[in-house]
Computed example of a mutant assay.
Amino acid sequence: MFTTIALATAPLHPAWGWGPGFWIVPAIFWLLIIGLIITLVATRRRRWARAGWGGPWGPHGVGPWASAQAAHNAETVLAERFARGDIDEVEYRARLEVLRSQQPQPPQG
């Protein structure tokens, strides 16, 4: 790859009489690479947004892991209520079973 770039820029070398032009081809090459990276990042962000979550840039509490986090928070609150004595063991286990059965499954695919 570097050989190809070197050969492509050879006619622009100062020895050929093109002094400042030597930097034009590598500059264009790197600008194209940076543009490609920016395009790929923007495309990925749009795909994540269309999928219903913002990925690393999206709002908190949205995404495939949000339902698991919400269920964990509900189980924590339930465990705290049980520990304080607000509910007895039978009610705790019944509510825990309901919480775990209603947990949405992550999308397959």
Rank of each mutant, 00 (worst) to 15 (best):
W57P: 00
L99S: 09
L96K: 07
S67I: 01
T3Q: 15
V25Y: 07
A68C: 11
A71K: 02
R93I: 08
Q102S: 03
L96D: 03
Q105N: 02
R46C: 02
A49M: 09
Q69R: 15
A15S: 12
R46E: 04
W30P: 01
P64A: 13
R93S: 07
E91G: 02
R47W: 05
A27T: 10
R50T: 05
V41P: 02
P20F: 08
I24Q: 03
I37S: 09
L40P: 00
Q108M: 09
P14W: 06
E89N: 13
G85P: 00
A74I: 05
G52P: 00
V62Y: 15
A70I: 01
R47F: 05
L12I: 05
H13I: 06
P64K: 11
H13K: 10
A10I: 15
G52S: 04
T43V: 14
A10K: 13
M1V: 13
L36R: 12
I37H: 14
I34D: 14
Y92Q: 05
V90H: 13
P104I: 04
A70M: 02
F29W: 08
L78N: 07
S101M: 04
A68K: 12
P106H: 11
H72N: 07
R50G: 00
L12K: 03
Q103K: 10
P14D: 05
L7Q: 11
T39W: 13
A8P: 03
I37R: 13
I34Y: 13
V90T: 15
G17F: 01
P14C: 01
L12T: 04
T3F: 11
W48L: 15
T4C: 04
A66Y: 00
R93E: 09
P56T: 03
I33K: 14
W57N: 14
H60M: 14
A51R: 06
Q102G: 12
Q105C: 05
P20V: 09
A70N: 02
I38P: 01
P20T: 08
